[in-house]
């Protein structure tokens, strides 16, 4: 095919140059990358990424908070683990990329993402492999506090170009949370402890964990010693009956992943029956999945509303 003649070349070139320049100027602000500082480095994220893969539930939370739907989620191969509070916003049009612990790199790659959001401790070992697929940013979801989760939510919103939306959503969040706090009232006289019972062991969420910091935000006390760091073992502490009895919380929020739980088998043992919360009937069962695995703006509001109800029924 002969080249298309553009006539007088000098003139045309000038026009083309002007046109090209104009297009560049118009497109440039759209195509600008954002530099995101995160736990595993600084990463250039394309402006307003469209195909996002998330490897922890709290990142689903952050995206849902600003109305963005991910294309892939590490949902532990259980679609129901993405609760209605999230699917109401993000819909059902996402693909499972496997477990949070060892997500399938192949499936992630096949989704052709332009942003991957990973957990700092879980996915550090595969950060290099993830970065080869798409720009990857990492935040401490697993062992971070409520405050850390909110900060991560802000950074994620910035990465996906939804700063204004997140600012508005966080203002709404504060109003809601303050509302729950007011409804809960002064609980500084109570020591409250969230525990997970998986049938084989119990795990106490310490003051440096997400739930520990959330309960503290609502004004509860915690009888557990505060660890120095915030590693997984310091945030989520495997505990024996003796240790539980020593910590002796006045309120226990129990998330059971097995029925009967290990704690159920302790009923009748003096050491267990004399734990303050058990003795006074202030051991409350809560949704294990929502409390122990979900973290973030929306999740904390679900927990807050839950707490308002729980506190109404606590026995002095």
């Amino acid at each position: 095919m002969p080249p298309i003649s553009l006539g007088s070349s000098m003139f045309n070139r000038a026009i083309l140059a002007v046109l090209a320049g104009a297009i560049m100027l118009a497109v440039a602000p759209l195509a600008q990358a954002v530099e995101i500082r995160h736990d595993l480095g600084t990463t250039e994220v394309p402006d307003a990424p469209k195909r996002i893969v998330v490897l922890e539930y709290s990142f689903v939370d952050s995206l849902a908070a600003v109305g963005v739907a991910p294309v892939g989620i590490a949902d532990d191969d259980t679609r129901e683990s993405i609760v209605p509070a999230y699917t109401a916003v993000i819909g059902d049009d996402w693909k499972s990329v496997g477990t949070r612990k060892s997500p399938s790199l192949e499936v992630i790659a096949s989704l052709q993402p332009d942003l991957i959001i990973a957990d700092t401790s879980r996915h550090e070992a595969i950060y290099g492999a993830l970065s080869e697929i798409a720009p990857t940013i990492a935040f401490d979801s697993l062992t971070g506090t409520y405050q850390v989760a909110l900060e991560a939510a802000k950074t994620i919103a910035h990465a996906v170009g939804k700063d204004a939306e997140m600012e508005a959503r966080l203002a709404e969040h504060t109003t809601r949370m303050e509302g729950f706090k007011a409804a809960i009232g002064d609980v500084s006289a109570w020591s409250a402890q969230f525990i997970v019972d998986n049938g084989e062991g119990i795990f106490l969420h310490s003051p440096v964990s997400y739930n520990g910091s959330l309960l503290a935000w609502f004004g509860f006390n915690n009888n557990m010693p505060t660890p120095d760091g915030h590693t997984y073992e310091e945030a989520i502490v495997k505990t024996s009956l003796e240790q539980l009895s020593e910590i002796n919380p006045q309120v226990i929020l129990r998330g059971k992943y097995a029925d009967p739980g290990l704690t159920d088998s302790w009923v009748g043992q003096p050491l267990y029956d004399n734990v303050e919360a058990v003795k006074t009937g202030n051991l409350v069962d809560v949704n294990a999945h929502e409390w122990s695995r979900l973290r973030g703006v929306i999740a904390s509001e679900v927990s807050g509303a839950n707490l308002v109800e729980i506190v109404k029924h606590l026995k002095k």
């Binding site: 612990k101 070992a125 595969i126 290099g128 492999a129 997984y232």
Partner: peptide
């Protein structure tokens, strides 16, 4: 047992003899 709980651990997966996450590196 003492340091990296199975929940957060890539070492755990690696120790079972896995090629998950292995790259040209």
């Amino acid at each position: 047992i003492v340091s990296n709980d199975s929940e957060s651990s890539a070492p755990m997966i690696w120790l079972t003899g896995s090629l998950w996450g292995r790259t040209w590196a």
